[in-house]
Each structure stands twice: as structure tokens, then as C-alpha cells.
């Protein structure tokens, strides 16, 4: 019994190591879309998450603010996100 618990814990560790080895592509897409695509297109891209309407509305509300930022500034934020993703992908 002790052996089976040990094996389970080892499996858990290996499994989670594998799961964290790659960044979720849908999340990467959503983060970049948030800064660079128009509101109607972004709303459409959020549909895949099947989130509650109030959560989508909240996300669009914040996007309304970030859309006021210059494209250059949004590009700089995207660069920071890319650096974070690179660090995770190592």
C-alpha cells in the first residue's frame, strides 16, 4: 500500500511537470488579442471560453481602457508578456 502511494506521488510529479512544460495556446492568443484586435473580433474570440456574460462584459470594459493606449505602448506590454512566456518555455 505504501508503495502504491509512493508510485502515485511520483506519477503526479511527472504528470504535472509535463503539463507545465508548454504554455496554453488559447491563453496566449487571448492575451495578445486583448491588446491588438478590435472589440467585436475580441468578443467573438472570447466565445470559445464559454464564460458568463458578465465576465465577458468586464473583460471588454477593461479592453475599452487599454484600447486608449497608443499602439506603441501596447506593443511594449506585449514584449513584456513575450519575455514572461519565454521564461516559462525554457
Amino acid at each position: 500500500m505504501k508503495l502504491s502511494v509512493c508510485l502515485l506521488l511520483v506519477t503526479l510529479a511527472l504528470c504535472c511537470y509535463q503539463a507545465n512544460a508548454e504554455v496554453c495556446p488559447a491563453l496566449v492568443s487571448e492575451l495578445l488579442d486583448f491588446f491588438f484586435i478590435s472589440e467585436p473580433l475580441f468578443k467573438l474570440s472570447l466565445a470559445k471560453f464559454d464564460a458568463p456574460p458578465e465576465a465577458v462584459a468586464a473583460k471588454l470594459g477593461v479592453k475599452g481602457c487599454t484600447d486608449q493606449m497608443s499602439l506603441q505602448k501596447r506593443g511594449l506590454i506585449a514584449e513584456v508578456l513575450v519575455k514572461i512566456l519565454k521564461k516559462c518555455s525554457v
Binding site: 496554453c24 488559447a26 491563453l27 471560453f49 464559454d50 464564460a51 458578465e54 465577458v56 468586464a58
Partner: peptide
């Protein structure tokens, strides 16, 4: 902000 947080939880879970 709490609704945005709900959205992010859904995004993370969607993996």
C-alpha cells in the same frame, strides 16, 4: 475586477 478574475480562472482551466 472580480468578473475579470472569473474570466481568467476560466481561461486557465480551459487548458
Amino acid at each position: 475586477l472580480s468578473n475579470v478574475e472569473v474570466f481568467m480562472v476560466i481561461s486557465f482551466s480551459s487548458y
